[in-house]
Nucleic acid binder design. Structure first.
Lengths: 345, 345
DNA sequence: AAACGCATTTCAAACGTTTGAAATTCTTAC
DNA sequence: GTAAGAATTTCAAACGTTTGAAATGCGTTT
């Protein structure tokens, strides 16, 4: 229909051989010119590169991968794609991967160890060049990842880190700081009875966040009250149980909540409303998440902790590619921290 | 740490050649045995296949792709990944693709034609074997996809279809039926003034859904009132403008809403609350989406139209792979409809 | 015993790159 | 004018498959 000036696009994609013929040069010269070999004459290089551009030459990835013995595929194992954190992190990973000539295979574990093991096996068989993993909520045994190690396939763990110290590469949110700031904000707003709703105890961020909370209390000279701390996971029932614990004694009821996850707060508030808790409308809360639909809620959190999932994902794959390219030794364990941002609504 | 009985996994992955050596056969026999060639002796086949399994032989994809002149990469162009519909559809696509040895490259257009064009160019250069596209909200000119056609690279359009009849392969939600059922439900609940909030006019589902609405009215002998119809897109401002139109005259205010998208309803309700519309609490609405956080809303829709995005995605890639494999001729344009489900909350 | 037909196996080229070694061309010095 | 040396280009093998053509083995037929 519209203008199409370049009719060079033929049916069979152009190869090095064809390019070489056009240029009346050998295939190796062309290859080396395109790859900027120092032994190739500068004038020749320019000539070749110009022609390549003109004919829309695109190297065949399969051939290169075959030669380089790489698959250019990265495996990503994560609990699910319904959680916005993971969706957004995948976006960061996918963008960066594509830009660097890699593809990703995504495996969801539904937070089940068994599925995590299966995914690891599947990805091993797919000959991935590297792995990015957000462990399931109760992964303690990491032996299903040993096979990668013995093949020299690097793994970067992201977001979720086991609560014991695992010698590995990791990219984590600086969740201590985030939780400190959130607690501090609530204190500044006059709260004294601030509850902490923690997540799965197997994951280290649960403790980091708790420490942020504790430290903010301490720095503001507010005594710590163990009754104001409860733990849950991603299950609604467990959250309700935790809330019941926190609000067991009406007199002592907290006036503010800090939660390891924003979604948990929604369940919490919903429950408090359902039992017609007298102060529910006064309770102020902050959680990790920054979900976009907060604006539709009747009793929204007063602030959110934006975890920058895209950035976490990008840092994870960026590190992984450096490990794959051996820019960083696989034994030189890295720990990258990505800051959160407290967003007041 | 734990038991690891199979120590066969060596550092260099096993190839056909190695397998052939072990078996004292030629590489071609082994290849043909694994690919179940009829000229190979059944006994030999079994022997080869047993050994392959034992040694964990996995064919090298790059080599096969090189030989077959395929990239085994599918490009997916869609407006964004923040919308749950697309996230869920990507899940369906990714699962099916991986199972069939394909990878996907995801490109987000942010509903901008310009970015759609760029994505198409990028994917062409990546030598994708096929394309799955959800067009941006105002794509009318499809010439940026012509290049694929002329190279014989199949395209499947999904979810979003241009409002004029484009000769192409498409996988769409049966959104007429969904909207009919939603409207019908509202009528059954006693509503007579039911508004229809339509989406971008360039996309065919806007009209299909409108027809569902109209037909339900007709079948229930309710006169059509043009004042009860307004159009918006994904922008909040436009939605507010549409709502202002619908609720312009207090007397005539609708008591129920059907929207082309659930998220739009949230904006609508929020606005009506903000202007303290007297009947806001009585208004019942239904939209396409079935968002999980509905349960947190104060005034939730009474029902949702579950569009089964995973199924839409799966149908799209399933069709695409058939086109790639030439099981279906590329000129034999297919139209697949995926049913919605009305979920009453 | 030679010739044939059949079942089965092997050969060898090809897919599109990369890259060390070998070959060629160009400079420069004597 | 030629030889050494540097600069540049080309050769050829390799990566791991697939596949049509050729070769092999073997039982039958004449």
């Amino acid at each position: 229909m519209c203008c199409r000036p370049e009719k060079t696009m033929s049916n069979t994609p152009i190869t090095l051989k064809l390019l070489a013929e056009k240029l009346k040069m050998s295939v190796s010269t062309v290859s080396k010119a395109l790859n900027n070999y120092p032994t190739i004459n500068e004038h020749t290089k320019k000539h070749v590169q110009d022609m390549a551009r003109e004919l829309h030459y695109m190297p065949n990835k399969s051939a290169i991968n075959l030669k380089e013995k790489k698959s250019r595929v990265i495996g990503v194992i994560l609990p699910n794609l319904l959680d916005h954190f993971f969706t957004r992190s995948i976006y960061g990973i996918e963008q960066f991967a594509t830009q660097n000539g890699y593809h990703i295979i995504i495996r969801q574990t539904n937070d089940e160890l068994e599925e995590e093991i299966q995914s690891a096996d599947m990805l091993l068989k797919s000959r991935v060049d590297g792995l990015i993993v957000a462990i399931s909520k109760n992964t303690q045994d990491f032996s299903h990842f040993n096979q990668f190690e013995s093949l020299g396939i690097p793994i970067v763990y992201y977001t979720r880190n086991p609560s014991f110290n695992l010698n590995c590469h990791k990219v984590l949110g600086n969740t201590f700081k985030g939780c400190y700031e959130a607690t501090d904000l609530l204190i500044k707003r006059g709260h004294r009875k601030i509850a902490y709703l923690g997540g799965p105890k197997m994951i280290s961020f649960t403790h980091d966040r708790f420490n942020g909370y504790i430290n903010a209390l301490k720095d503001n000279n507010i005594p710590f009250d163990a009754n104001l701390v409860a733990y849950t996971d991603f299950d609604k029932e467990n959250t309700i149980a935790a809330i019941q614990k926190l609000f067991a004694d009406g007199n002592q009821a907290p006036t503010a909540l800090v939660a390891f996850k924003e979604l948990i707060l929604f369940d919490a508030i919903k429950y408090l409303r359902s039992i017609d808790h007298p102060q529910v409308k006064q309770i102020e809360c902050i959680g990790f998440g920054n979900n976009s639909f907060i604006s539709y809620l009747d009793l929204p959190p007063i602030a959110s902790l934006e975890e920058n999932p895209e950035s976490v994902g990008e840092n994870a794959i960026s590190l992984l590619l450096k490990l794959i390219d051996k820019e960083i030794s696989i034994k030189n364990y890295q720990k990258v921290m990505v800051d959160c941002k407290l967003v007041v609504h």
